[in-house]
Design a protein around this nucleic acid. Sequence first.
DNA 1: CCTCCATCCTGTGGGC
DNA 2: TGCCCACAGGATGGAG
Length: 284
Amino acid sequence: MPELPEVEITRRHLATALDGHTLTGVQVRHDRTARYNASPAEVESRLSLRRIENLGRHGKFLVADLDDGQVMVAHLGMSGRFTISNPGDEILLHTHFVAAFDDDQQVRFIDPRTFGFVAVFDDREESPLSRLGPDAWSDPPSAGELSARLRGRTAPIKALLLDQGPIAGLGNIYADEILHRSRIHPLTPGGRVRGEKAAVLLEATRDVLAMAIANGGTTLDDLAYLLPDGRAGENLSSLSVYGREDLPCPSCGTPIRRVLVRARSTHFCPSCQKSPRGVVTVSL
DNA sequence: CCTCCATCCTGTGGGC
DNA sequence: TGCCCACAGGATGGAG
């Protein structure tokens, strides 16, 4: 599942191919890949002949500034992957977007489950970027700022990390990893994460993301995420809890448990991450 | 405002 | 062996 580290790796790969280059032809090959009330034809025409000035990232969204002030926003969803290809390369199954550039290279978007998209907006305010909190990696909030964003929230901290509002970029894998490293129980009400706890959470966020990015991201057994050059990320063996139900906690040896939080699989160590007072954990 | 749920989708794998 | 179905989850819109 692409999360911040996987999107950041993708951004770095694509930036060299995109930055400063002009889109000579754009094909949106699947209706659902254009989103936000725009048709494939509209996305194609809005992107046509535009030059990409800079490819950035906010949370899990790729953000390209275009020469006319428009913003191209792409999301990998659950199964999306960008490739850099040559015009003659075979079009793989589930290729939903093809952008041709002035140097004859192509950037293609392959997305079997179509949760991902490529969209164009007049500015960031009218795009989904406007809902996002500060980026967990490039622009992390201070402990005070994170505490303020969590103040009064009763939802489980796990759910709030996935929300993208308090902090942007974390998904199910890294949220679990960060909470484990922070020794915070996933069902802890968000509002109780403040002060030193918030500082520890942010430190863990930095460490977990740094490791994941250095390892080229996490490729699970199902190979849902591959680097743009087709290689697998190597962060899987660095995970402490995600996907490790019943296996020993790397810190203390206690078997990792899995519960559902908001219908999402949540992995934690019951001894390192003590249940907060008044919170009952129900087994699956 | 908040919390929580259903919805979108396809490949995979477990169960029978 | 082969079929069926539950499961995986990011973002969003709506109910309460």
